[in-house]
Design a protein around this nucleic acid. Structure first.
Lengths: 239, 239
DNA sequence: GCAATAGTGTCTGTCAGACAATATAGG
DNA sequence: CCTATATTGTCTGACAGACACTATTGC
C-alpha cells in the first residue's frame, strides 16, 4: 500500500480541519444592498464585525447547518439560501484550520428590518460594489458612521456574494427572493437597480420581465400613494 | 458562556468531518465532452469508477489539494482548475462523514489524451447532457461499451460540472482552457458546440468571438489540410 | 385642474441567424 | 479546373434603449 493509498483509506491517521458555515444575510435597505453582521466578543478580531456562522455538526448537512445558523443567530425561520463558495486558506483563522462554506441568504426588506430589530447585536451595513474599471476596485462595507472592517476573510465573502448575485440576477429568479409576496414592477426594478448599481430603462425592464412569464398580476393595487397606484404582481415559479 | 458560544469557541470538543477534494477532469474527445475516471479497488463501491480525489491536508489550501490530486492521480502538471461546489450530504460516503469540495479541471484534447495514455487506470467516458425539456432529464456518463455507473454522488458532481461549464462558456474565457495554445476559429466553435450540445451559426460565432477582442491572429495557418487552411489564433487575456 | 407616477406606443441602433458569394489550399 | 473549407458580405427579424405620450389616483 503506497502512501497515496494510505491517504485514501485511512483518513483517521490525519489531522482534520474544522468545517464551518458563514452566512451573508443580504437585503435591500433604503435603496442600497445591505448585509447583517454580528459583533465578535473574543479574540481573534474581538470587537470587529463578522458574518454570522457556526461549525457544521457531524450529522448535519451543510444546508442544514446554514439553516440552523440563520435561525439561531438571526432569528430567521425561512429565507432563500444558496451555497456560494468554500474558503480554505490555511491561516484564514489564526487559531486553527477552519474551512468555511459560505452561504448567501436573501431577505426581503421587511424580513431584513425585522431581524435587525428583533435580534440584539446585529448591525446593518450597506455594500457598495464598483463596476470593473471604476475608481477604487474594492467592495466597500459601511454604515453612515464609516467603513466597517470585517473579521477574517469575511469582506472577501461579502464581495463574492454581491458579484455572484449580480451575475445571476438577470437570468435567474433570485431577485424575487428580495421582494415580498406581492410587489409592483417598480419595486422589482428598484431591487435590480440596487443590486446592479445602475439605472435601468423602465419600458424595457417591464417588457423583459413580463415576457419572461414569471409574473402573475393579482388584480390588486398598491395603497397609500397620492398618485396612480401600481398593480401588484406575484412571482409564479412556472418554469 | 452559552451552548452556542461553546460551539463557537471550543470546536475541539466536537467530532470533525473529513474534507476531501474531487476533480472532474473534463476534455473534448472525438467532438464530445468526456471525463477521466479512476477505478476503485476497495469497498465501498469496489470496482466502480469514481472521480480522482484525495483528502485535504491540514496545512494545505483547497486549491493546493486539488492541484496535488491533479498531479498525483492524473499526472497533469497544469490545467485550468476552478472550484465547483461543496457536497456535504451526511451519508454520501457510507464509511464516515466526508465533505467533498468538487473542482473542475479543463484539459485540451492533447493533454486529455496524454493523461489517458500515460496514467494507467484512467478511463475516459463521454458525457451527454440533455437540454431542459428534452426526454430523459439525466446526464449520461458512458463509454462505447455502455453506461458507467459512478461511485458515491460523483455522477451528480459531473452533472453539475457540465451545467456550470455550459453556463459560463458564453460569457467567460473558460472555453480557451479546452484548446491548445494556437487554434483555429473552427476548433473554437467545435469546443463550444460540444459543450453546449447544439450547432452554432458560423458567421455569427466568428463575429462574436472576434468582436470580443480576446483573439489575436498569429499570421500562421494550420497545416495538413487538402483544402484552404484556416488561420491560427491565440487567446490574449486582454480584459 | 394639478402633481406625480403607472403604463403604453413607437422609433432606432445593435446584433444574431440565415444564406450566399468569394477566397484559397492541395491535387 | 475541381473539391472542400475558410472567410466575408448582406439581408432580416428580435430586442433593448430612448423618448414621448396617455392613464389614473389623491388632493
Amino acid at each position: 500500500m503506497t502512501d497515496d493509498e494510505a491517504l485514501d483509506y485511512d483518513p483517521n491517521a490525519y489531522q482534520r480541519p474544522s468545517v464551518a458555515v458563514d452566512l451573508v444575510l443580504l437585503g435591500i435597505r433604503g435603496g442600497e444592498p445591505a448585509v447583517l453582521l454580528v459583533k465578535r466578543d473574543a479574540p481573534p478580531f474581538a470587537g470587529r464585525r463578522a458574518l454570522p456562522g457556526g461549525f457544521v455538526g457531524i450529522d448535519e448537512t451543510l444546508d442544514a447547518a446554514a439553516a440552523r445558523v440563520l435561525h439561531d443567530k438571526a432569528g430567521i425561520a425561512n429565507a432563500h439560501l444558496e451555497q456560494l463558495y468554500t474558503f480554505g486558506a490555511v491561516a484564514r483563522d489564526p487559531r486553527m484550520r477552519i474551512i468555511s462554506v459560505a452561504y448567501l441568504a436573501l431577505l426581503d426588506e421587511a424580513a431584513f428590518a425585522a431581524a435587525l430589530e428583533d435580534t440584539p447585536g446585529l448591525l446593518a451595513a450597506t455594500i457598495t460594489v464598483p463596476w470593473p474599471g471604476e475608481t477604487g476596485g474594492a467592495v466597500e462595507i459601511a454604515t453612515p458612521k464609516g467603513a466597517v472592517p470585517l473579521a477574517f476573510d469575511h469582506a472577501d465573502i461579502v464581495a463574492l456574494a454581491m458579484l455572484r448575485l449580480r451575475g445571476k440576477l438577470d437570468y435567474s429568479d433570485v431577485g424575487f427572493a428580495l421582494l415580498p409576496e406581492r410587489f409592483t414592477l417598480r419595486q422589482l426594478q428598484d431591487v435590480h437597480e440596487a443590486i446592479l448599481g445602475v439605472a435601468l430603462n423602465k419600458p424595457a425592464f417591464r417588457r423583459r420581465m413580463l415576457d419572461r412569464g414569471w409574473l402573475a398580476p393579482t388584480g390588486e393595487r398598491e395603497g397609500g400613494t397620492s398618485f396612480r397606484p401600481a398593480e401588484l404582481y406575484r412571482f409564479t415559479r412556472s418554469s
